[in-house]
Amino acid sequence: MMSLRLQLGIIFIMLVVAGSIVHFLRRKRIDFRYALAWLFVDIIIIVMAIFPQAMVGLSDILGVASPVNMVLFVGLCLALVVIFSLSMSVSRLADKVRKLSQEIAIIRKDMFDGDNRVREEIKGNGGEAE
């Protein structure tokens, strides 16, 4: 079982983390969608620390020796999910930056060339013949 000291320690740290997330949310340093993911992880860990008994059954099923390790393992898995979703976000952002950079380069050249016609970038109508 988990010692009371460890339980309180985990809960305290997770509450500090939750407070920080809310703090950054209020200062608009993090988007809601990412803040929610992290808060979810945070809350799961708090719940597991409050009810370690609930972990015992799960530990047995998965063959994890102690509930403490179970808490760490679940926390790690959730963190990995969040990190992977960040990789996907970064990839999407990179695609957007790429497209924007290309558009900027083209607009600049068109302006330089004195070509002010707006090109509708609708599929199938992207390159109106000149």
């Binding site: 790429r98 950079s101 290309q102 900027i104 380069a105 600049r108 050249k109």
Partner: peptide, 20 residues
């Protein structure tokens, strides 16, 4: 010439040309 504002690598550069 087209001057890319950020470095995109060969794929992104060629794609700029196709887009243009």
């Amino acid at each position: 010439y087209l001057n890319l504002p950020v470095n995109l690598g060969i794929g992104g550069a060629v794609q700029t040309g196709y887009r243009y």
